[in-house]
Design a protein around this nucleic acid. Structure first.
Lengths: 340, 340
DNA sequence: CAGGAAAGCCAAAGCGCTTTGGAAGACTCT
DNA sequence: AGAGTCTTCCAAAGCGCTTTGGCTTTCCTG
């Protein structure tokens, strides 16, 4: 059942039927009702390929997925996707993932824009002066950055959490508890979120005349194993920290294992605060010692990203609005006063 | 730059240019070369919306993503995606995720097929007599099942790992080591993979005249917390098992924590074997006691699924070919002889 | 009641590609 | 040499929708 058939059976022109269906004003309300009704009754659904050819709109949002044998997709992605899907579902938006060589995403961005495959894209895990952000903002397609870039002479729309504030609060708490040597086990510090977190920790320390030692900050891919290694290295050194801030729950697993391997205890010998993106399958309160966290649901962020993208597509949102979400500090058993 | 312009500048008809580009035989080799050359030089790329409207092919594969506030996307999905993306990238295939209400995926399947949004779909985590498999096979779109369904009177193409064989081997090893009371901490037993794993364990036990006690098999969503709870329940009972087979590394985290909370040890008091889908961020060899596993890379499966879907789209693969991958049993420190 | 505005509808022209049905010329065969 | 067959190309008809421009008809207004 296509438009032509529907129009014919209603004894109307395609024009009118199309306009009635798409809510244009120049059609009689009663006619519109008739059309809507018939469309529903016959299960008419406009062919998206055709609509797309005519309008250039696809009803899909895009994401360029960096892939490669050596590239691992962040497990957070799944949670983000849950949220995004949740919103998208109720708005009949689809998400198209365009896999790209991690070292050459530009080609793919250009392709999906030139081809008008999607109406909008989002970018995640940006670095400072991220080339994707620069590229996409010149390409003239609606977009949103999940996270933040830095160092541009232009603004862009983004949704980020207050990473600096979160780690500032976490570090401040640890300092208040008497800790003088803090360590930060961070994610890849080429990414903005990691930079912000480090900045937050430094600022909190500086407020008490302390500093974050060169050897007390690690920047690694966020795996359990890297959490373990970093912790071993930190705690086996002569100036071992008494408190650790850690950028992910998964790394925190490794931290806990390392502490145990060294016959130390949390929080007796070392306090620990980690960032929690809220996974359904790994909860900080279930760690052997309940873990203090800075908490922010990445799933909610996914839903919000979808919502704002939809708004941008339909022109309801414009300009370079940045949105920063506060982060909760949830104190549990893994922090205590500094050992004597 | 569209076909018309290109044709005009070559002083050829659109027909010929189109045919030259798409490898049709009725065009002179030299003309083809000229066309190809000009196309490349001017960066001509056929508009996919138009091609799609004309051919009905989209160059995309689809996946219906069950979503909802209470629905969590399996973290395995990300690894699967890595593999799928890896293949898709080199073949300019995109993946479209169509989020759907988890309780009504049929509508979405019908929509994406009717709309010709994708050339093929895959289905994952099937149950026996899975309605999606039944539906899709009547819809006449190329598809592939990742995993297996059961109980149909028709065949369908799938890619699965030998879950039954894997858990049979695991259980057999434990029995050989003298264990008489095994437990299975399984995933949702409405899904086929869980049924197969249980079947494998039972078969191994039966071979030695043993059985899997009613209370020794749990079927839960695969989270750390559920692994913990199941283990507490198992080990605090009077007929506590001396060995546990576990369906996921994430649950195994919980198992290890529960064992430790009870002041028991692995493998002294209880042996443990878990299934490992090979995550880059959590490795069995890094567990406090290196974990024995049944191992199968879900990432490789993703790549293979993409490859076979591509083959089906282009007609290179037909019929209901089932493919079952063997699973490695990797023995590490977490298994030992049964306690006296 | 003439003139203009507004409402309601339509025919037809795209959107950019593929594919059908020839046609013209070159070649083979008897 | 004439008939038949390839080879190589083309014009034009879709694919199913949106949108432009215009045509009636109705409704006011002075």
């Amino acid at each position: 059942m296509n438009l032509k058939q529907l129009a014919h059976m209603l004894a109307l022109s395609q024009t009118t039927v199309s306009r009635a269906l798409n809510g244009y004003p120049e059609v009689n309300e009663e006619t519109r009702r008739r059309v809507m009704d018939a469309a529903k009754r016959h299960g008419y659904r406009p062919n998206p390929s055709a609509r797309r050819l005519a309008t250039g709109k696809s009803g899909m949002i895009g994401y360029v997925l960096p892939t490669g044998a050596a590239v691992d997709i962040d497990p957070h992605f799944v949670e983000f996707l849950s949220g995004l899907g949740d919103y998208a579902r109720s708005h009949e938006l689809d998400l198209v993932l365009s896999p790209a060589d991690a070292d050459d995403q530009e080609t793919t961005y250009r392709r999906i824009v030139a081809n008008r495959q999607v109406d909008a894209v989002y970018i995640s895990s940006p670095k400072p002066q991220d080339s994707r952000v620069a590229l996409v903002s010149t390409l003239g397609i609606p977009f949103l950055v999940h996270g933040r870039s830095e160092g541009f002479d232009f603004d862009y729309p983004y949704l980020d959490i207050d990473n600096e504030g979160a780690f500032h609060e976490a570090a401040r708490l640890l300092v208040q508890l008497g800790h003088r040597r803090l360590a930060l086990i961070n994610g890849d510090d080429r990414e903005t979120f990691a930079i912000h977190r480090q900045r937050g920790v430094r600022r909190a320390l500086a407020a008490s005349g302390l500093t974050l030692g060169e050897r007390h900050v690690c920047s690694v891919v966020m795996t359990e194993e890297n959490g373990y290694r970093a912790t071993r290295r930190l705690l086996e050194a002569s100036d071992a920290p008494t408190a650790i801030a850690c950028s992910s729950l998964i790394m925190a697993l490794g931290v806990v294992r390392a502490v145990r391997d060294l016959d130390l205890t949390i929080p007796g010998d070392v306090s620990l605060i980690a960032h929690d993106d809220v996974f359904p399958w790994l909860k900080p309160e279930n760690f052997s010692v309940p873990l203090s966290t800075t908490r922010s649901s990445i799933r909610l962020a996914g839903a919000r990203v979808a919502e704002r993208l939809a708004a941008r597509i339909s022109g309801l949102e414009e300009g370079a609005r940045g949105e920063v979400w506060p982060v909760d500090l949830v104190v549990r058993g893994s922090v205590a006063g500094a050992p004597a």
